[in-house]
Design a protein around this nucleic acid. Structure first.
Length: 307
DNA sequence: TAGATACCTTATAG
DNA sequence: ACTATAAGGTATC
């Protein structure tokens, strides 16, 4: 068993682990206390969060848990999780420098940054990210989590951790080997054939989602839409939350509402043109950071405070 | 190329 | 109880 503690004071801009993991960027973590990211979540939690991860040295899939308490990010794992956390929670991102590129006269954005300061984007493994966001279509956040846990239970490999059995996220080959009916039984609905077809494409090497990383942003978005069930919005999510495209701004229902209300001149009709306009408005190369703070703030703010 | 519609499933509002 | 509606959209026509 490995363990460690990372001083939050040493991270540029600090850390808000709860906001980072419960802001709808990733569906690959869950709370040890079983409180599955419900709406009435109290803020400031020091709960343990769990996920599975690959050991950076051996490639072995293991389990890790982490919590933020007393100025530290504490972790325990069956693998060497220090580098994993640094990567997946983007602990090296310089938040003050990133925020400094946001428009200064944007009151709503400033309040969003203030409300959840320390929240970081994530950099999750690409195949699970692809599948989870295919699953996210027309789905509530809580149910997206449930679907991922169902996939783990049905197809993941067991790993023993603290006397319990935890399931890894299934590999493309494993999902590709199942049936659409089986996936529908897990509650995926019309997303079942999408997940199956995309897993087949990745398993067979028809296309490699990692290849998008080497393309210019808009070409990368176009590339990812070749996967079944992946449109422009899901492609943007994968680029932002897995492939280091910090300028990506996924146009989901919340951001579309925000555009209609606060950035109406950025609505250019098509996804691509609107996306370009809002990216420019939110600060260009770090627009995805701004998007994520706005998204989290708007989802949790009462209507009265948005006046 | 742009616009309309169907689609699984669940939860909530009326 | 029962229907309409919406939930981090996409594929198809």
């Amino acid at each position: 068993m490995y363990s460690g503690a990372i001083s939050v004071a040493d991270l540029p801009g600090g850390l808000d682990l709860q906001a980072t993991l419960e802001s709808g960027q990733t569906y690959l973590w869950w709370r040890e206390d079983g409180n599955c990211f419900e709406d009435d979540e109290p803020a400031g939690s020091d709960a343990w969060y769990r996920t599975t991860a690959q050991d950076p040295h051996t490639g072995e899939e293991g389990v890790l848990r982490a919590r933020q308490r007393e100025g530290c990010l504490e972790w325990e794992a069956t693998v060497d999780a220090g580098p994993v956390l640094t990567r997946r929670l983007r602990l090296e991102d310089d938040l003050p420098a990133i925020r400094s590129e946001a428009p200064e006269d944007d009151h709503l954005l400033a309040r969003s940054y203030d409300a959840y300061w320390g929240m970081r984007l994530v950099a999750e493994p690409v195949f699970p990210t692809l599948v989870t966001f295919i699953c996210s279509a027309q789905m509530r956040v809580e149910r997206i989590h449930e679907m991922q846990q169902s996939l783990r239970t049905a197809f993941g490999d067991p790993v023993s951790f603290r006397g319990e059995t935890v399931r890894t996220y299934p590999e493309p080959e494993t999902i590709a080997a199942t049936s659409e009916a089986r996936l529908r039984d897990l509650g995926l609905g019309y997303r079942a054939p999408y997940v199956l077809a995309t897993a087949e494409m990745v398993a067979e090497g028809t296309a490699d989602p990692l290849a998008a990383r080497d393309l210019p942003y808009e070409e990368a978005r176009e590339y990812l839409t070749r996967f079944v069930g992946v449109g422009e919005k899901v492609a943007d999510c994968v680029l932002l939350f897995s492939l280091d495209f910090l300028e990506a701004v996924p146009l989901d229902t919340w951001i579309r509402k925000a555009i209609a209300r606060w950035y109406p001149d950025c609505d250019r009709g098509s996804y691509g043109a609107t996306s370009a306009a809002i990216r420019e408005r939110l600060g260009g190369r770090y627009a995805g950071y701004a998007q994520t703070y706005l998204f989290h703030f708007l989802r949790h703010a009462e209507e009265s405070v948005l006046a």
